[in-house]
Amino acid sequence: MKELLVRLTGIYGPSGREEAVRQAIRQEIEGFVDEITEDVMGNLIAVKKSSNPDAKKVMLAAHMDQIGLIVTNIDENGFLRFSNVGGVSPFNVLHRRVVFQNGVTGAVSYETELDDMKKLKLDKMYIDIGARSREEAGKHVQIGDAAVYHAPMAQSGDRYFGCAMDDRAGCAVLVETIRSVKESPNELIFVFTVQEEVGLRGAKTSAYTINPDIGISVDVTLTGDTPKSRPMAVNLGDGPAVKVKDASVICHPKVKDLMIQRAEEAGIPYQLEVLEYGGTDSGAIHLSREGVPSGVISIPCRYVHSAHEMVDRNDLENAVKLLTCILEKEIV
């Protein structure tokens, strides 16, 4: 798991530019599935067929994309102005190192004459790639290029932290689940989605194509276990979370109850998650066509959308176990 996570979190892939992530995941799952395709949006779709003639179609989704900064203007002194791709907080990106697709790195800073840090907004900020002029900057970066955090994964005991755990941790869990599931009475369609961070857009189109009976997405969720954090009954390391609701989806009670039942049967630790803000791919999947009963397995994660998103190894491993238990048996 660790090596996979190091590899996946180190790859460049802001929303809309997921090609390197897609390539890496394809390599990881080749030989473990019956069929791999890519669609026009860039979703990577891997199918594990079933010998059961009444197999239900189960769509599993984890998103490949990460948040990023997109260059909107290059000033005469070579500083890059930028906008956000997905949910970027000025405080999270301030004085971070960022990297472009071609490997060019820069530092994010702000107009220091700003009198009140509460007023810090992205339009008062810029990326400094060390260029001395617009011409010099233009040799390395074009308007429309996007940068992501440059923060290689680190480890402290069971805790891993780095950028893009949201949602490469989910991708890693799905990859390991693909390797772990033996025989299933269900047809399993694993979708590594694009553009989740800009509105669940890859999940929307892939769910339409697949037209599944059940949808399950795997994504990170917030925790309530850090000093004076917003209260939330999810702790890092207490097990994968079975989502009840977030702002994008109220998980289907039957899918949620099935997840709980499988966790309890197998003695896998789990938590129940009520997330008051934010959404995930199941938000799009469950409203596809005539409706797809959907649920979510969440990976508790501290500091989501920062350069140091922190997850716990045990939660990841238990998420793989739980998903495997769910998929190897009849679904609802």
Binding site: G224, P231, M232, A233, V244, K245, I250, V274, E276
Partner: peptide, 17 residues
């Protein structure tokens, strides 16, 4: 409403639907 957390004295914290 929906239960968000249960405190040590048995009171329920909640969010809205």
């Amino acid at each position: 409403l929906m239960v968000k957390d249960i405190d040590e004295k048995g009171f329920l914290r909640f969010t809205s639907i």
